[in-house]
């Protein structure tokens, strides 16, 4: 059985995550008025409809694109040497020290508690249309899958292949991939929880909710 207290303690030792904000493509960078030590926020609102703090503007082909902070945190470093310079794709602009949120901690602990089904190879993954429809129409954590079920479509090198789930029967409790992004081999795709263990998982979440202080 998982020792939640130990895990939590471990996380509490270093409750931060460093986020490096990089350019999504080439262009000329102009930083917003941000300084080291300044607090920034990520997208806000009930539907995350308000964007985060603007960190910089990246202009490419006369199209200025704002770059926002993805999460709440404190600016650790601004790469101001790039001010007004043309930079390549994936150039670091700002690093943010982000205090883990309750949800993130939950996720870290759940990764230990859930059965993880991992990507067999580096590829893009999608749910099969039936599963996708089910996921969209039902509550999170209620879609049950069985061993050997066709669950994913794996897409790489312009070819698509079905991928079958192997592992205990249970509900899809967590999803760790985005359909548009490549997933590395062995990275987890989903976290599955056998139905009889759902109460335990709920307990994990309760524990995190009571013990993790957000600031």
């Amino acid at each position: 059985m998982l020792n939640i207290s130990d895990l939590l303690e471990q996380i509490k030792q270093n409750p931060y995550r460093e986020i490096v904000v990089r350019t999504p493509h080439t262009g000329v960078v102009n930083f917003a008025d941000i300084k080291q030590g300044q607090a920034v926020h990520g997208p806000e609102g009930q539907w995350k409809e308000r964007s985060g703090t603007r960190l910089a503007t990246l202009t490419r082909e006369r199209n200025p694109k704002p770059i926002y902070a993805p999460e709440k945190g404190v600016v650790d470093k601004v790469y101001s040497e790039y001010e007004n310079a043309f930079v390549e794709n994936a150039t670091p602009l700002v690093t943010i020290r982000h205090h883990l949120t309750r949800e993130e901690v939950e996720n870290i602990i759940l990764r230990e508690a859930l059965h993880l089904f991992r990507a067999p190879e580096r590829a893009k993954y999608y749910f099969t249309p039936e599963i996708d429809a089910k996921m969209k129409s039902s509550d999170p954590g209620s879609v049950v899958i069985r061993d050997g079920q066709e669950l994913f479509i794996m897409s790489r090198m312009k070819r698509e292949l079905p991928l079958y789930y192997s592992g205990p029967e249970g509900v899809i409790y967590a999803i760790y991939f985005k359909p548009s992004d490549n997933v590395d081999a062995d990275a987890p795709l989903i976290g599955v929880c056998p139905q009889e263990e759902l109460p335990n998982i709920k307990e994990v979440i309760m524990r995190v909710q009571t013990e993790w202080q957000e600031n």
Partner: peptide
């Protein structure tokens, strides 16, 4: 007539590349 790229408002969701 304006040589400029334009970002689709759905770019985040559908990954639309900037349009010319």
């Amino acid at each position: 007539k304006i040589d400029q790229a334009v970002t689709c408002p759905n770019a985040e969701i559908y990954g639309c590349p900037d349009l010319w």
